[in-house]
Amino acid sequence: MEIYVLVKQVPDPEAIVKVKSDAELEIENKYFTSFFDEIAVEAGLKLKEKFGGKVTVLTVDNRRVDALRRGISMGADDAVQIADPALEGSDQFAIARTLSAYLKDKPFDLILTGRQAMDDDAGIVGPAVAECLGIPHVHSIIGLEVDDQKREAKVIREVENGRENLACPLPALFTCQKGLNTPRIPLVMNVMKAMKAQIKKVDLTSLGLGQSDVSPYIKIEKYVPPPKRPPVKMIKEDFPENVKTLVKLLREEAKVI
């Protein structure tokens, strides 16, 4: 099977993020490969182990290729970085068009992405790539089995009131959610090797794209700090008065019950 996994290096959830001004965030330099993307890589590697073939990791990023190296150290065969100054300030739709331009003439059976990137939490790129390529997609899968002969995948999707089973012909794109698998921790030796691995670099011109193809549909007008919660009110009374006080506060002050 030919499998492509879309990966992104993002600030770690523990990194400090502050609104510096309307137009700028200050982000602590603490990055990791987006959590759900590692799940996508793991899903690709499992299928490769079963059916043979190749896993390629792909990123659009002008600066960071660490997610690609993480993919290689886990066992991906190939890595491609798409970078171009014209991509500065692009949105998820532009990223999706760029990725699709690269993928459109590749012999893919399956494209895997994260449910959402852990920085923008958007969940746009996966379904948007599927639309550009004209292939079916399923968002947020927690189960995946492929029948290579029938060229069909059976997936489980999480919905509000339960789990839905779907059958989907290949090629297809799935966005991966926690629960699908537990990503492997790469061996130190493989991490070292990945540091030196060759990474193909591609720009927009070679994909036949110009600046107008990556103009954004949405843009951030303004950053706003999160609403501040007033300091906690600790209820200091002894049990059981503290319980009575809590109920009273919830009814009379917060008015939520």
Partner: peptide, 8 residues
């Protein structure tokens, strides 16, 4: 964004 550390 960033799980609520900032809003846009």
């Amino acid at each position: 964004l960033f799980g609520g550390k900032a809003f846009a």
